[in-house]
């Protein structure tokens, strides 16, 4: 049982690389996440994107800064700055 707990502990610390779509550049960027631990705020910080200047969706649903990201989530970062 001890070994299983260690294994699941290791898995929970495992980092995964996911691609997020960044609308401002119309590009996909790679970020590292720890599933169920890394938050939207962490991802924005990794990419140098301001939370106040963006809206994030996870699987096409609006997400807030404290929402956690899972390995297979479809993450989009939408820009709020537009126009001239």
């Amino acid at each position: 049982m001890g070994e299983n707990m260690k294994e699941s502990k290791d898995k929970s610390k495992s980092k995964f690389e996911i691609e997020v779509f960044v609308e401002k550049d119309n590009s996909k960027k790679k970020t590292n996440i720890v599933p169920n631990k890394t938050t939207v705020k962490d991802i924005l910080k990794q990419l140098g994107i301001l939370s106040s200047a963006s809206i994030v969706t996870i699987n096409n649903d609006i997400a807030t800064d404290d929402d956690v990201v899972k390995e297979k989530d479809n993450v989009k970062i939408l820009s709020v700055i537009s126009g001239g």
Partner: peptide, 22 residues
Amino acid sequence: EKESRLFCLLKGFNVEFGECPY
């Protein structure tokens, strides 16, 4: 701006998001 963008998203208004090239 964030509230305005969120509003358009939630209402499903089709809006081209981009900055003026100038």
